[in-house]
Design a protein around this nucleic acid. Structure first.
Lengths: 234, 234
DNA sequence: TAGATTGTTAATCGATTAACAATC
DNA sequence: TAGATTGTTAATCGATTAACAATC
């Protein structure tokens, strides 16, 4: 439910997790007027090896030309089609604290295929507040209106930016209202039916993983450089 | 540089990525007064299998008691020690748009071992603005002061919340100033020396991966339910 | 001792990598 | 044809899983 995320008909989860990166880099290249790219060039721009990139792309089909490379526009389209991001998806964001507000106005969402349909909160003192979303403003709605909002729009993905205590209840409500995909920023494991796909983003966990590496680093710095020892030099 | 993140002396990358989750759940349990927990109970609360949990913990040592389970406080401490999160780490956040502001005031950071040392931006119209960080307010500093801020504090981790165009330059500046860990929210692959650890969080990518699964789902809904076919029922 | 649960083993599975034959 | 680069193969590596012996 969080990292690799299998489940496809045939595309490996690790590949699916990288396709959006390839897509964004290719789209940027197309904007810059690049027409053809080799697996080596694209791999460097995406921060992966060319072998991995070619392997990943091979799961989609044979869209390159030997001796030449890939047509940027064509490959961009094929990846978009595979990912199902040829049309914009509607989002409902619940929890209008600082993070929720930031996401609601996040330009990268609009640029990469998502539009915010509604923003909601449970707190009466926040309900009704206008929130800037792109070029329009949306009023914060009470979460009780989730069902009607989803029924009356193309919203497909729920984003939870509430505190941990409220998250499970909101998730239940989202599921009951028919959403089948949830992006969860609350630091708890949501309990949802198998048919619902949840991705969890825990920003503090990301920092803690970084801290671990720093910790290792300082251990190394103290104890006379075991990297050298390990390499058999000292 | 992004998902599993090996590099430890001996703990597998996949395990390291899960330790912060175990730590948080255990800390919550300790707060609730739970004193002992079995691998099965803890695993459910963390959203993993008990086999995986025990395997992960076995990399740290033997901290459980057969027939009994794990002492919550003791295990919490052992994980914290392994992760190096027994002391709070200083953060410098660069890019005071909506996302940067949200992170600066994010309570979960303070609760989980991080404190914001400085917030910075390049834009003169933003510099000097007071930003609420926990119970104090920090003025937005010009990025040019990064070096002196780091020299005069315990800041160890840089957080990049600038637009993509500015991110590489900021990363170069961070590296030159001595930071060795970067959390990057800009949707570009940063080019940094090997000794610098970068984690990238691309919020739009998270959504796109969700969209992929929704896409699969709707494909299934159209073509007479291949999940049943695959299960050998129809 | 009987029941419970850990820590470890061995088998399986999936992902990565390097090398190269196919082919533009 | 000669040079370049893909798509695929096969080997390696790491992660997951289930089962169970060790042991509280």
């Amino acid at each position: 439910m969080t990292l690799p995320t299998r489940k496809s008909g045939s595309i490996p989860g690790a590949t699916v997790a990288r396709l959006p990166v390839y897509h964004r880099v290719l789209a940027d290249m197309a904007t810059e007027g690049v027409t053809t790219v080799s697996s080596e060039e694209l791999a460097v721009a995406c921060g992966v090896t060319s072998a991995k990139l070619r392997k990943d792309l091979s799961h989609l089909g044979s869209y390159g030309t030997r001796g030449v490379g890939y047509d940027v526009t064509f490959l961009t389209y094929q990846i978009a089609r595979e990912l199902g991001i040829t049309k914009s998806r509607g989002l409902v964001i619940i929890g209008m604290g600082n993070l929720g507000r930031a996401l609601a106005s996040y330009r990268a969402f609009a640029e990469r295929g998502f539009h915010v349909v509604a923003v909601m909160d449970r707190d009466p003192s926040i309900i009704g507040t206008p929130i800037r979303v792109g070029s329009v403003k949306l009023k914060v709605l009470p979460v009780t209106e989730l069902g009607s909002v989803i029924a009356g729009s193309d919203a497909q993905i729920g984003v939870i930016t509430t505190p941990a205590e409220a998250a499970q209840e909101i998730a239940d409500h989202m599921v009951a209202s028919g959403l089948i995909s949830i992006l969860n920023f609350a630091p708890i494991v949501l309990n949802v039916p198998e048919s619902v796909e949840v991705r969890k983003v825990d920003l503090a966990v990301e920092l803690q993983i970084l801290a671990f590496h720093e910790h290792l680093q300082s251990e190394r710095d103290e104890q006379g450089s075991p990297h050298l020892l390990r390499a058999g030099i000292a």
